[in-house]
């Protein structure tokens, strides 16, 4: 709903429906401002680069980003040599000219290497839950940037939940079981997260204060790490966003002038018959 309001677009009442219906997170999402938001927003590439570091050090062990290639990292400002070095750091499967299966160092043209060979392996290694691919995660969730940002910071001690929060949690349980007396209870191997739909997430807390050390000395508390990570994931979801907005400004200016000319022509042509 926020997305719709902030975009200030036409708000036919029923268009708002799907966004609401697809929601279902826990408590209100944490609020913050991302530079890429709004009709003219652009990526903060320093943050995107830091976010890539967070992904590489903390997320990549479980989450694939199969739609990205190492070469794409040049678009966030990394040098050719840096991209080559990052690619060469991983070993990728290939077939040599005799047809034998080999492993070789990665090249910029390779896709990001996935941590698991297939989904079954991913499930087996993660308590039955397959970590989703993160290439499109910001686009694939309602208010995706704020959702991921909140999710990273949504891990909490369930015992500390206030009475009001408890009521919301019990509401989930009632809806899920259809039992009016049901109360919220954690399943085994799940973690309490106030921003995950249903509030029980298989992923243990992935990020904590100070988990990643930035070379540029940017502070590394959890909100900052989360924000940087989201900057990177947002860029990964739509690398062509800036090209889209830049082209859009030119197109809209052109169309406004054209509309003005068309209207003037229409007025002139019709002047004699009114």
């Amino acid at each position: 709903m926020r997305k719709i309001l902030t975009r200030g677009a036409l708000t036919l009442a029923f268009l708002a429906g799907p966004a609401l219906a697809a929601g279902g997170g826990g408590f209100k999402l944490l609020d913050t401002h991302f530079k890429f938001e709004g009709p003219l927003g652009t990526y903060d590439y320093a943050a995107v680069q830091r976010g890539f570091q967070v992904y590489k050090e903390k997320c990549a062990a479980c989450h694939s980003m199969s739609l990205l290639s190492y070469r794409n990292l040049r678009d966030i400002g990394l040098s050719e040599a840096a991209v080559k070095a990052i690619a060469a750091d991983v070993m990728v499967d290939d077939i040599d000219d005799k047809g034998a299966k080999v492993e070789r160092p990665g090249r910029p043209s390779d896709r990001f290497r996935s941590p698991f060979a297939n989904e079954a392996a991913a499930r087996a290694a993660n308590n039955g839950a397959s970590p989703p691919d993160l290439s499109l995660i910001v686009k694939a969730r309602v208010d995706g940037a704020r959702y991921v940002y909140s999710l990273m910071q949504g891990y909490d001690d369930m015992a500390k939940a206030s009475a009001a929060d408890r009521a919301i949690m019990d509401g989930y349980a009632k809806k899920a079981t259809g039992d009016a007396k049901a109360t919220f209870a954690m399943a085994t191997g799940r973690n309490f997260n106030t921003h995950f739909p249903g509030m029980q997430i298989a992923m243990p807390q992935p990020l904590r204060d100070g988990d990643v050390t930035y070379v540029d000395g940017t502070k590394n508390d959890l909100p900052q790490l989360s924000k940087d990570l989201v900057s990177f994931l947002a860029w990964a979801s739509e690398p062509k966003m800036e090209e889209r907005k830049n082209t859009g400004v030119k197109v809209i200016i052109f169309m406004l002038i054209l509309a003005g000319l068309m209207y003037a022509v229409k007025r002139k042509v019709w002047a004699g018959v009114h």
Partner: peptide
């Protein structure tokens, strides 16, 4: 003009996040 405003500035407005 209205159509293109959506194409360039709110291209996923009519879409479902779930379809990504």
């Amino acid at each position: 003009l209205v159509y293109l405003a959506f194409v360039f500035f709110a291209p996923d407005f009519f879409g479902e996040p779930e379809n990504y």
